[in-house]
Structure formats: structure tokens, C-alpha cells
């Protein structure tokens, strides 16, 4: 068995002449929670999409244990079952009930028994407080509820690694918490996760390690306490400052 669950080595991704990810390398251990932060357009989401082989890559490789994850690769379908992904826009299947959304992949892709899968789905729904919504359609749910269902849907495939792509970015503020709580819960049970987020305090609470991405590079890689209190690079400092507001209350009276 390989020592790392995920190995990203020399990953390079271009859109036309625009290089979005430049020679990215890092490893993820089992049970580790990685938070990827950085300014908009720094390639965070693209990185997750490449790990899940939703984008072809121009250089380097992504390994899950010893298997190469690659679009058009041989065991891609099996590998993707080991990598769960949750998107910003939830993307539940609108024509299926909540329960069917969750059981579709386990039953059709993994050929698991209906009774077993449904029992697991119901248990997971109960854990995220949505047991009574099993027979609802996605349009009947709030954004936060949809996102929790999307997380359950990914979990039910039994992935070894979970990717979260700005899962709270499209939510109303009061719904952010319910989704983050679910994720904190998962981290506490030892799930391996890579999380892209703009919620800095959440990042600090959940991360074992922070990757700061800027301009397609990993500019800084550090434990959260150190990164948020004493970032080493100028770019990380400047980025963290954009989340601070200076008070304007003390302005002089206008003439």
C-alpha cells in the first residue's frame, strides 16, 4: 500500500495559451483535511476538477494510491467512485427525488442492493437532519438543504477522498453554517477531504494543512495556525488583509 492517499506531481493545466496551474505538487495523507485558499481565478476550482479528471491536463500526474487518474484512463469510473466531489451549485438531479439522487450511483454504478443503499441513505440523511425530505424533489429544498443532500449523495458512494468546491459560495449567509457543520462533522470522523473555500474562520477550524494558491502556484503551504497568524509570504499577507475592514467611524466631520 502506498504511503500517500493522493499524490499530485507536476500538475500543469492550460486553457489555450493561459496556464492556470503551473507544475503543482503535493500529497494528501489518509484522514487529512486540506484547505485550498487563494484569490478568485487562482486555479483552485480547476485543481479540484483536475484531481477528479473532469479536465484534461497538459503535464504531470494525479495518483490515487498507485492508480493514475486521467480523463479517458482505464479505471476512471472505479477511481471516481473513490473520489467524491461536491460542487458550488449543488447540481442535484432535478428529475429525481432526494433519495433517488443519493441511491442512483450506488445502485447503478456499484450494483449495490437497493435495500442496503436506501438504509444507508436514510441514515446519512438523518445525520444531516434531512430524513423527512427523502421523498422531496430538489426544487422543494432550500440551498443549504440541497447542498447537504449533495454531500450525502457523494458520501453514499463510499469515497476515500472528498473534494469540496466552494460549497457555501452560492448560499444565503444563514444557510452557510448548516453546511459547514456537516463538513466539520465529517472531518471529526476522519474523512480525507480537500476543501476550496472563502470562509477563512472555517478554514482555520477544519484544516490540518492550508495550501495557498495564487497565479497557478502553491505560494505557501502551512498548518492553519501559522498561516493565519504569521503568513510567510507577502502575497499571502496581502490576500488575508482583503478580509479585514478598517473602521471608518472615526472620520473627521465633513465641512
Amino acid at each position: 500500500m502506498a504511503e500517500h492517499l493522493l499524490t499530485v506531481r507536476g500538475l500543469t493545466k492550460r486553457f489555450g495559451s493561459n496556464t492556470v496551474l503551473k507544475d503543482i505538487s503535493f500529497q494528501v495523507e489518509r484522514g487529512e483535511v486540506i484547505v485550498v485558499i487563494g484569490p478568485s481565478g487562482c486555479g483552485k476550482s480547476t485543481l479540484l476538477r483536475c484531481i477528479n479528471a473532469l479536465e484534461p491536463i497538459e503535464g504531470g500526474e494525479v495518483l490515487l494510491e498507485n492508480d493514475v487518474v486521467n480523463p479517458g484512463g482505464k479505471n476512471l469510473i472505479e477511481l471516481r467512485q473513490k473520489i467524491g466531489m461536491v460542487f458550488q451549485s449543488y447540481d442535484l438531479f432535478p428529475h429525481l427525488t432526494v433519495l433517488k439522487n443519493i441511491t442512483l450511483a450506488p445502485m447503478k454504478a456499484q450494483k449495490r442492493k437497493k435495500a442496503e443503499v436506501e438504509a444507508e441513505a436514510m441514515a446519512l440523511l438523518e445525520r444531516v437532519g434531512l430524513k423527512d425530505k427523502a421523498q422531496s424533489y430538489p426544487r422543494e429544498l432550500s440551498g443549504g438543504q440541497k447542498q447537504r443532500v449533495a454531500i450525502v449523495r457523494a458520501l453514499c458512494v463510499h469515497p476515500e477522498l472528498l473534494l469540496f468546491d466552494e460549497v457555501t459560495a452560492a448560499l444565503d449567509p444563514e444557510m452557510v453554517r448548516e453546511v459547514l457543520d456537516v463538513m466539520l462533522n465529517l472531518a471529526a470522523t476522519g474523512k480525507t477531504m480537500i476543501i476550496v473555500t472563502h470562509e477563512m474562520r472555517f478554514a482555520r477550524a477544519i484544516a490540518d494543512r492550508v495550501l495557498f494558491l495564487d497565479g497557478g502556484d502553491i505560494v505557501e503551504e502551512a498548518p492553519p495556525e501559522r498561516f493565519f497568524t504569521a503568513p510567510e509570504t507577502e502575497r499571502a499577507k496581502r490576500f488575508l488583509e482583503t478580509f479585514e475592514f478598517k473602521s471608518v467611524k472615526a472620520r473627521p466631520a465633513t465641512p
Partner: peptide, 29 residues
């Protein structure tokens, strides 16, 4: 939307199953 296909793929559904269970039912409606 293409993301429907992508979420099905990331759940480990094959392209054929994705077409059959996710894309076609919605497209037909």
C-alpha cells in the same frame, strides 16, 4: 447544464449510464 454530467461522472457513473439516467430523462421532459 454540463455540470449535471460532471456531477454524475464524479459519482462514478459511466458516460452511458449518465446519459441514460441523468441527461436523457431531463432532456426528454
Amino acid at each position: 447544464p454540463p455540470i449535471q454530467k460532471e456531477s454524475a461522472y464524479s459519482l462514478g457513473l459511466s458516460p452511458l449510464k449518465t446519459m441514460f439516467h441523468v441527461i436523457l430523462p431531463q432532456a426528454v421532459s
